[in-house]
């Protein structure tokens, strides 16, 4: 068996190829992405609780602190820097309009969860939106503005129609 603490991996990040990068096997995906310069991925706890480090792996949101960089080998990663579909541009506009962030530290993770909501292409009640984002800490807003922003986004994107 391999007994190396380092390994070489490749992946696609925000539609660009990143090939043959040597990483320590212990490094989690969040640190790996940050080391590559994707600083929009924020580490709030490194124990999977806060949700600030959420990124998309093959189109699904995951906690980047709870996934090793080596596990992402061969996968397609989207960080907040690459979250620019037309739907997500609408989402971002709605977040700005509703001031759905203060310090901005939770925002990239919050957007990843919003991506999941938008992706499911159905209507959500405010309570359901609250349920979906309940794995993302925000210490500034009190959440209401975020719920407003997600609700606004879903209306503008016209989901489930």
């Amino acid at each position: 068996m391999s007994n190396l603490n380092k390994t070489t991996i490749s992946m696609i990040i925000n539609n660009e190829n990143y090939d043959d990068i040597t990483v320590e096997t212990r490094q989690h995906l969040g640190d790996f992405l940050r080391d590559l310069g994707f600083k929009g991925t924020h580490l709030g706890c490194e124990q999977g609780a806060c949700g600030a480090c959420n990124v998309l792996v093959d189109g699904e949101s995951v906690r980047s602190c709870l996934m090793l960089a080596v596990q992402a080998n061969g996968k397609k990663i989207t960080t907040v820097e690459g979250l620019n579909s037309s739907e997500m541009e609408i989402v971002k506009d709605c977040f700005v309009k509703n001031n759905a962030m203060q310090c901005g530290f939770c925002s990239s993770g919050m957007l990843m969860t919003t991506y999941e909501i938008v992706k499911s292409n159905r209507k959500y009640s405010r309570e359901e939106i609250r349920e979906m984002i309940s794995g993302n800490y925000c210490r500034c807003t009190g959440y209401q503005a975020i719920v407003d922003a997600v609700e606004d986004s879903l209306n503008k994107i016209n989901v489930g129609v």
């Binding site: 924020h42 971002k92 700005v96 962030m101 901005g104 925002s107 990239s108």
Partner: peptide
Amino acid sequence: PRERAKKLLEGKGKYVDD
């Protein structure tokens, strides 16, 4: 609307760990 909000939202904020 806060001009900076969009930047923060897009992960372009500059925090000390960055």
